[in-house]
């Protein structure tokens, strides 16, 4: 899948809100790409627009999502229906809300199968039970007959994943699938995603704001800020050699068990851009401790600058300055 200059704007009372402000991103077959950013950075808007789930009278989506020889942004709703759930599916974050409360879990999995394949009711139900077993539900036959409210949070999220996998899609978008779960269940669900990636060769886009999750499962990482990717690279590149001051600050704000104990957790000063109007220069400049006059002129291109071959960023700092910034953000006092 290739994403080119994808833009998503929503009509709001104040004007047009650019949720995604021009994104270029390639998905490689079978990889697990983590999409990282604060709330409002556009990661959900980006992923929903890949299959047109945020289409609507107030949404303006432009650019290209090339997949299977066509552009999904320009595809008709009917064409998209054939792609959704079959080639690309989504695992939503709040499984209790995302599952139909009045349908048995087995029916909801079976519906996904029967929407895209000519399968009898009974066979689809059988397959649904198998899928529930495959995602690690201990008693799939019984679980299939349960309603969502009768299952635990972790089991509901597994059901969501079983629905997502039902037609063995090429791409699975997991939108913060572990946010609502406690830590042990979270680890189990991540492990499950990793296993499915390995066994089925599924390409997974994992949306998260949790860098711990990224460190655990991601192959590649794209960091988003104000509707743009500001840095992307392999997991190790981004986590251990961050190039963009925002990524550095994000990493710095992760509390560490072995770090100094302070009364306040480290935070990035200021707040992310949420307004309709955007500055002409780097969107992070107003919050950046290392910004200079040139940062306000124009948004830097997403280019390979000082990192590895696939390690891109949008920052004008030169290499020594980056080194100082990296060292600085580690020793920096807790931001106000």
């Amino acid at each position: 899948m290739e994403i080119r200059d994808l833009r998503v704007e929503f009509d709001v009372p104040a004007g047009r809100l650019p949720a995604v402000a021009g994104i270029d991103l390639d998905l490689r077959r079978g990889e697990l790409l983590a999409l990282v950013g604060e709330s409002g950075s556009g990661k959900s808007a980006l992923s929903m627009s890949l299959v047109g789930l945020n289409r609507g009278p107030t949404a303006h989506i432009s650019g290209e999502v090339r997949f299977g020889g066509r552009n999904l942004v320009a595809a008709s709703e009917k064409e998209l229906r054939g792609v959704r759930g079959r080639d690309i599916s989504v695992v939503f974050q709040d499984a209790l809300a995302a599952l139909n409360p009045t349908q048995k879990v087995g029916d909801q999995v079976a519906e996904m199968i029967r929407t895209h394949r000519k399968v009898g009711r009974r066979d689809a139900w059988k397959r649904a039970e198998e899928l529930l077993g495959e995602v690690g539900i201990a008693n799939p036959v019984q679980a299939a007959r349960a309603y969502p409210h009768q299952l635990s949070g972790g089991m509901r999220q597994r059901v969501m994943i079983a629905i997502g996998l039902a037609n063995d899609p090429a791409v699975l978008i997991a939108d913060e699938p572990t946010t609502a779960l406690d830590v042990t269940i979270q680890a189990q669900v991540l492990k499950l995603l990793k296993r499915l990636q390995a066994e089925h060769g599924t390409t997974i886009v994992l949306i998260t704001h949790d860098l711990g999750v990224v460190a655990e499962v991601a192959d590649r990482v794209a960091v988003m800020y104000a509707g743009r990717v500001i840095e992307q690279g392999t997991r190790d590149e981004v986590l251990f050699h961050p190039q963009h001051p925002y990524t550095m600050a994000l990493l710095h704000s992760v509390p560490r068990v072995d770090g100094p104990h302070t009364d306040r957790l480290p935070a990035i000063a200021g707040s992310p851009l949420t307004g309709v109007t955007r500055p002409s220069g780097c969107a992070f400049a107003p919050r950046c401790a290392f910004a200079s006059a040139g940062c306000g002129d124009h948004m830097p291109e997403l280019l390979r600058r000082y990192g590895g071959s696939g390690h891109l960023d949008r920052c004008l700092l030169d290499e020594p300055a980056r080194g100082r910034a990296r060292a600085g953000s580690d020793s920096q006092a807790v931001a106000p």
């Binding site: 792609v83 959704r84 989504v90 599952l99 139909n100 519906e111 929407t115």
Partner: peptide
């Protein structure tokens, strides 16, 4: 869950 239904195609 209506969004989920749309996601299913």
């Amino acid at each position: 869950f209506v969004r989920t239904a749309r996601m299913k195609g």
